[in-house]
Nucleic acid binder design. Structure first.
Length: 804
DNA sequence: AGCACGCCGACT
DNA sequence: GTCGGCGTGCTC
């Protein structure tokens, strides 16, 4: 007897293990680990993944596998191992980890249906209405009424109807009608068979015979190229000289786009210098992690492209991760331009079907390069030669729901599995990565100069406190306004960056720039309107709301935040002749609108591009000579220990937009805290100095990279319940860990309530805690029942990026 | 997560 | 005495 251990698609602690099933005779040797199957589970049928094939089982009652869903495993052996590691590492269920590695389109969803086993006329009237002439109905379409459900129950008992479970694959492959010639007619004289008068039919057959004797050609293409008709084709099909067949087609989101071949520029000296060790690592199968720090405009992308060339020469494959691919169409263009059809693109704006098709190209080894956002790190290549993570510091590489993985972590795991290098690229690496590079864990590569020796843009810092004193209450300083006018006169372009509204409300003195901070955590205090108090979201410290500024005694102390729309209105009032394109969530929600707006701006249809985060990167237009940051402080004062780091990264990123070609660029940064180190170092483009100073802060207050963090969030509708549970968890954690590990909280979550659930959190700071994961797992198990029944929510986030 | 089984109150 | 409320525990 052969058995299979199956991981079933039920996300619950009690089912987070393999279940044994018998492999039916006809499937023995066909079923392999990594395939999806349908199995009976209790009274229903669900999907599962084959984990392992065994020859025996310890159980005496084992059901057979109902169905095999794949002719060929969707998960490679590597993926199965990676899944197990991922589940342990992020404290999530194995099935959740496995499910996240394949496109959502192949996740079959179970369907409950009601089948008629007798004549409809014998049913009670209420049920006849339900069936209405059909032999089966979808459970979900049945009206939610008591009487109907009770008559269903009775009918089931009387065996008039039966409940059935279908697990249908959602995948739909798009097919097109195609033509293939009947091989029997190869090389014959068609006039002999068709007669001399059937000129058109002869032409079609000869075309096939000489050019495509074995190939399937889409019917539309035949008609178009031969200028013939559907009728002619139909006649040949009836004579069985041609066969009508289905050709599987990929939904190629880029099919109607022409990609300009990307020129292969001469490398600069420093580029060559940086590329050499990468090529060596590729050649010698070394699983080195490189940290490529290159200032904006230093040609990091060209390094990626050259390294990939090497990988392809070796007959291997490469993955390129970019922060949010729809945000960087220019990047896609370069990869498609250089490697053409060898590239699959996986971005979040694709439909589920399109994503599945791109994924399938990788799975079938039809492409060698995958370019995509976070989840592309799971691209199912089997001969990986290189993984690149561009803008490695970006927060979007961390998935914010289960499994809460960081793409960098996965990339390095896969690198060591395949014995291939990983390149982390950024102008402003995360402190974690930079610290590792300094310690020699990663190999540091640097590009210190821009290509063609273009100067770094000049950065002007505008003190908005002074503007206020001068009586300027608008969002635009005199300097910025004047420079915008200059650009209009010179017919150059400008980008204006406005931070997304702070998600939490912070308080700032508009007179002196003072913001309230927690005395214990170096974190901005958050204003809670209901209690009129300022609170720390890390440790729970609180103080009453300020009415006057403790630093300068001014009464100009208040909340902060402005929206893009308001700024746009103000801008058109101040500069009515300027043509403005606004890019934010509202104007880019429609598919493709993002790209269209950027294209319009690139074509010079506007003078000013005003937007949020999304315009900060990947934008490379030669006529942009001015970049403005309207309020650098909004991000600086978020209640997050990474606030300074994010501000520095963002300012550097935005500055990089200006003057990338022959025209030199300028940057204007407006702020209420001009002497903050993240702003000062952004002015001088000095990453080294910034990181040094920030590391000091991190060391003093015990944050990464000096300590690791884990965040436990507890949520429930009842505040008292949440507080009690959180308290219990915190004390359990405190008693379980070694004394060097600190447990902060419980405290209110920065988003205190989501969907009517109150949220509290505990933060764990640790350096060396070998049992951490097992202790956290214990918590997850201990509260599992309450989570299932009592709407209690407990989430565990290892190395959180956000503290919401 | 579903779903059945099972034990208590309010209805024919 | 039955129907149906939801608490409890299992699913190979």
């Amino acid at each position: 007897m052969m058995y299979a251990k199956v991981i079933v698609d039920v996300t619950a602690g009690q089912t987070n293990k393999a279940f044994d099933y018998r492999i039916p005779e006809e499937l023995i040797d066909l079923i392999l680990p990594g395939m999806r199957v349908i199995v009976p589970f209790g009274p229903r049928k669900i999907q599962g993944f084959i984990w392992e094939i065994t020859e025996n089982t310890e159980l005496d009652r084992v059901k057979p596998i109902s169905e095999m869903l794949d002719p060929y495993p969707v998960l490679t052996n590597e993926m199965l191992q990676l899944g197990q590691w991922l589940a342990e590492e992020t404290v999530c269920f194995l099935i959740t980890a496995l499910q996240s590695m394949i496109p959502s389109a192949i996740r079959a969803k179970p369907k409950k249906i009601l089948k008629l086993s007798t004549e409809e006329q014998y049913l009670p009237a209420s049920l006849q209405a339900v069936f209405a002439g059909k032999s089966s109905v979808d459970w979900n379409t049945i009206p939610n009424e008591k009487e109907i459900f009770s008559s269903i129950k009775q009918a089931v008992e009387k065996e008039e109807i039966e409940v059935d479970y279908l697990v249908k694959d959602k995948t739909k492959k798009k097919t097109i009608q195609s033509i293939r010639m009947n091989p029997q007619y190869r090389g014959v004289r068609f006039a002999d068979i068709l007669g001399n008068r059937a000129k058109k039919q002869i032409a079609v057959m000869e075309w096939f015979d000489t050019r495509y004797p074995d190939e399937k050609i889409p019917i539309k293409e035949v008609i178009d190229t031969l200028q013939t008709s559907k009728h002619t084709m139909q006649q040949l099909i009836t004579k069985e000289m041609l066969f009508l067949e289905e050709l599987e087609e990929y939904r190629d989101p880029y099919s109607d786009r022409f990609f300009e071949p990307d020129p292969r520029p001469e490398l600069t000296g420093q580029q060559k210098h940086v590329l050499a060790p990468v090529r060596t690592a590729v050649d010698h199968n070394q699983d080195t992690t490189f940290l490529l720090r290159g200032v904006t405009g230093s040609g990091k992308t060209e390094i990626y492209l050259r390294a990939i060339e090497k990988v392809l020469e070796k007959g291997e494959e490469a993955i390129v991760l970019v922060p949010e691919i729809s945000l960087t169409p220019q990047m896609v263009e370069r990869f498609k331009g250089r490697f053409g059809s060898k590239v699959a693109v996986l971005h979040s704006a694709l439909s589920a079907g399109e994503k599945y098709d791109e994924w399938r190209k990788i799975h079938r080894k039809e492409v060698q390069v995958a370019v995509g956002a976070r989840s592309a790190v799971f691209a199912p290549f089997e001969k990986l030669g290189l993984i690149i993570i561009d803008e490695e510091h970006e927060g979007s590489y961390k998935q914010e729901d289960h499994p809460r993985y960081h793409a960098r972590h996965i990339a390095i795991w896969r690198g060591s599995y395949h014995k291939c290098p990983v390149i982390l690229g950024s102008a402003t690496p995360s402190l974690e990565s930079y610290a590792r590079a300094k310690r020699g864990v990663y190999e540091l590569l640097e590009l210190k100069e821009r290509v063609n020796n273009i100067a770094m843009p000049e950065v002007n810092i505008v003190d908005m406190r002074k503007e206020l004193r001068k009586g300027n209450r608008s969002a635009f300083s005199e300097l910025l306004l004047q420079k915008l006018k200059d650009r209009l006169d010179r017919n150059e372009q400008a980008v204006l960056f406005l931070n997304r509204r702070g998600y939490s409300t912070f308080v700032m003195c508009r007179n002196c720039g003072y913001t309230a901070e927690c005395p214990h955590c170096e974190i901005t205090l958050t204003y809670h309107h209901t209690q009129r108090k300022l609170k720390c979201h890390y440790c729970g410290y609180e103080e009453p709301m300020l009415t006057t500024c403790p630093a300068c005694e001014s009464e100009h102390i208040r909340f902060f935040g402005t929206g893009t729309q308001k700024v746009e209105e103000e801008l058109t009032k101040l500069l009515p002749e300027a043509r403005v394109i606004r890019m934010d969530v509202d104007t880019t929600s429609k598919k493709g609108s993002h790209e269209k707006l950027l294209q319009a701006f690139g074509n010079g249809e506007a003078d000013i591009l005003l937007g949020t985060q999304m315009i900060a990167k990947g934008l490379d237009f030669p006529r942009i000579t001015l970049a403005g940051v309207l309020a650098a402080d909004t991000m600086l004062h978020l209640p997050d220990f990474r606030a300074s780091e994010r501000t520095f990264q963002l300012l550097t990123q935005v500055s990089g937009r200006a003057g990338r070609d022959k025209l030199t660029g300028e940057v204007v940064i407006q702020t209420y805290t001009p002497d903050h180190y993240s702003i000062e170092h952004a002015k001088t483009h000095d990453y080294e100095a910034f990181s040094l100073e920030e590391m000091g802060h991190r060391k003093r207050s015990g944050y990464p990279p000096y300590y690791y963090l884990a965040l436990v969030t507890i949520a429930h509708e009842d505040v008292v319940k949440v507080m009690q549970t959180a308290e219990k968890i915190a004390s359990f954690l405190r008693s379980s860990f070694s004394p060097q590990t600190k447990v902060l909280g419980p405290t209110v979550s920065p988003i205190a309530r989501i969907k009517d659930r109150y949220r509290y959190q505990c933060m764990i700071k640790y350096r060396n805690e070998p049992d951490l994961k097992s202790i956290l797992n214990k918590i997850a198990n201990r509260y599992q029942k309450e989570m299932a029944t009592d709407k209690l929510f407990i989430s565990i986030d290892m190395n959180p990026q956000m503290f919401m």
